[in-house]
Design a protein around this nucleic acid. Structure first.
Lengths: 230, 230
DNA sequence: TCTTCTAATATTGTTGACAATCGAATAAAA
DNA sequence: TTTTATTCGATTGTCAACAATATTAGAAGA
């Protein structure tokens, strides 16, 4: 059994975000306080505070007296997310390309292997999560915590957007080889090429969106139950 | 008298942020729950939730069992704030220069007048706030709410940074004429020039910083009392 | 006088009960 | 059958009391 030390609001927030990142929590899902209390074994106070954090990150929407539901970004919001990602990620890349070390490259390649393994094991949830985390890992190399945190928000929202408007459940969040090519360009110190690849990669994902919503669903206990696979 | 409808955590959060923006709340100031309850006439629940929001915006620091204090960004954090601002603001400018309308220019010029008036009236608090809001107004024209919200965070943090490391109390947050020149360039549709001015403007502010902290102070009741001058 | 320990005070953290509000189900009327 | 009211159950919002923790003040000893 997991330890019984009470989870903090940050923990609950992280768990919910994980579920969003792995697309086990569909946009529009109603989150009642009581159910989350039960799932995570915490009091309403903690859940309530977690809701506040999640709202600030645009992961849930809070309506007065009507509770919380997982956010459903509009097409316009989706556009803004990708616009922001391109700006931030290319900005970070400009720094990274100048400071990147061999150790960093090793770490990135290690991550690529993990992505590949997850895909081969047909562990789709894990793969979806890893492809998102690749971008965060890449961002971290630039050493700007503020932009990191902001990009994190954007990546989580991207997950919601892909869940809403993306291609069928088989469809990739990030097509397989793009990340490897990007690491290669980075390793070669070719900023212009790396930049092109990054922009193209993001545009590709955006281009695959079809703005006609759909609604999968899931049971909360199941969804949250198997969160910690890392 | 103002209406007695209870303020929400967002309201409290906004009031505190206003005070930070106008530099009436010094970095390091201890914020006890009870004092804020008294000042704003709300319960501890509301203050507590506001604290959570303020923490997420890096405006206060929360220590377990030790309460909240206004954040004191480190020199490294200051560097990251300016790096982020340059990235975001130049990115937004690239959009704005393509879509800006005469009405937008009018609005910006109106803001410049307000800045000038505040300066002439020696209403320094208001002037400091307006110079910060100029950047937010400019950003809003690009029509990306996510980047807007992020820049808002950065501007508030800039206020803390200037309070900590900036030139003496007479020193300007944004030197007077820079904003006007920027609007002129924008009005002329000269992207390259506008971009240069913006970058130079931000670099100027950063260059004026001296990383040797100082500590002004103030009474909470006074600080919050005269917040709403807009 | 200075240090160290203890007790008192003040502040924060948590819980549970109660109030307010919303949504659904039912019943009544057109 | 459809629409409108009303009641009931469920969910959220608020508050106050209590517990846990930290800070301060004071006393004792060197």
């Amino acid at each position: 059994m997991a330890n019984r030390a009470a989870l903090s609001e940050e923990d609950v927030c992280a768990r919910v975000r994980d579920s969003v990142l792995e697309q086990r929590l569909a946009p529009g899902t109603k989150l009642t306080e009581e159910s989350l209390c039960a799932v995570f074994g915490v009091g309403r106070t903690t859940v309530r505070r977690a809701f506040l954090l999640l709202k600030r990150d645009n992961i849930i929407e809070l309506q007065k007296n009507r509770g919380a539901m997982v956010a459903s970004p509009s097409p316009e919001e989706a556009r803004q997310v990708f616009e922001s990602r391109i700006l931030v990620e290319t900005g970070l890349l400009k720094t990274t390309i100048k400071t990147v070390t061999l150790i960093d490259i090793e770490q990135l390649r290690g991550h690529l292997l993990a992505e590949k393994a997850a895909l081969e094991n047909a562990d789709i949830a894990r793969w979806i999560r890893l492809t998102g985390e690749f971008h965060l890992l890449l961002a971290k190399l630039a050493g700007n915590k503020l932009l990191d945190a902001f990009l994190e928000q954007l990546v989580f929202q991207t997950s919601l957007i892909v869940a809403l408007y993306g291609p069928g459940s088989t469809g990739p969040n990030c097509s397989g080889d793009d990340h490897r090519q990007l690491v290669d360009a980075l390793s070669a110190g070719d900023h212009s090429h790396a930049n092109d690849l990054l922009v193209q990669h993001l545009h590709e994902i955006e281009a695959q969106l079809e703005f006609a919503p759909q609604q999968p669903f899931g049971d909360l206990q199941t969804i949250f139950g198997e969160a910690r696979t890392a």
